[in-house]
Nucleic acid binder design. Sequence first.
DNA 1: ATTCTATATTCCTATTTAGGAATATAGTCA
DNA 2: TGACTATATTCCTAAATAGGAATATAGAAT
Lengths: 136, 136
Amino acid sequence: MDLVQIYQCFCDRTRLRILNLLAQSPLCVCHFQTILGEPQVKISKHLAYLRERGMVNVERDQNWMTYSLSRKRAPELEMNLKCLQDCVQSDTVFARDLKKLATIQKNCCEPRTAFHKSARDRRRYGKAKSLVHLRS
Amino acid sequence: MDLVQIYQCFCDRTRLRILNLLAQSPLCVCHFQTILGEPQVKISKHLAYLRERGMVNVERDQNWMTYSLSRKRAPELEMNLKCLQDCVQSDTVFARDLKKLATIQKNCCEPRTAFHKSARDRRRYGKAKSLVHLRS
DNA sequence: ATTCTATATTCCTATTTAGGAATATAGTCA
DNA sequence: TGACTATATTCCTAAATAGGAATATAGAAT
């Protein structure tokens, strides 16, 4: 992956927030929606942008698509992700995102219904299944 | 300066090359033209782009415009510039740019004609003036 | 005053980008 | 089967970007 392409992936705030989260753990689209509070299309398109450039990988887990940072990363990407994490410390938005993620992860072993919102979901998924796609 | 804006400045190859050079020393436009081998408009426009976003400063030295990285830089910018310098090590183009810059700097105390190209220039500037705008 | 030099700006065009609305798709459940 | 859920894609529009050609400008030299 080219250095310029890395910065192209970095030069949008939504994508930066996504990457900041992915640096912590693989996540599925609904998590991004919840944490970032942005519409589904927007999230989905930025994920596509990152996918097309090989920045992230996807894996299907039933209905959920789990995104993760691509496994084998060029050293420049690694350095820049590290740098991003340092830079982001001081920024309220990014920090809040990470906090929200931590909250979700704490509920990681609870039934899916603990995260997914509706009563219908609760009926559908019961208590058995855990949020496996939240675990790294 | 916003983090996203930093990456916007970084997400074009020509601008990256310019910034890589400026991390070494302030330079004037003709140096960029020579080192990058790109047309004047292109250089000038990218410099304008960086200027408008407060990434670089300009100072006039007679006919020459000397560009430098903006003096007081946000910590995120500082970190990313450092990261850029690390990343760039492995890339042929950037390395070659730095090499060319070093060559020019070595001739820093020679008359301007040593750098500026034509015989006409040589006539015009004689041997007296040194490339002060190359000194940091 | 005129010419020349270094650089900037304007005008143009093609391409990329961001984002929303609507729709499609693939998998799950009843 | 048909309804529902999570996510992706298509179609649209507005804005940003990149770059070239031509021209403008400010200062220096003659």
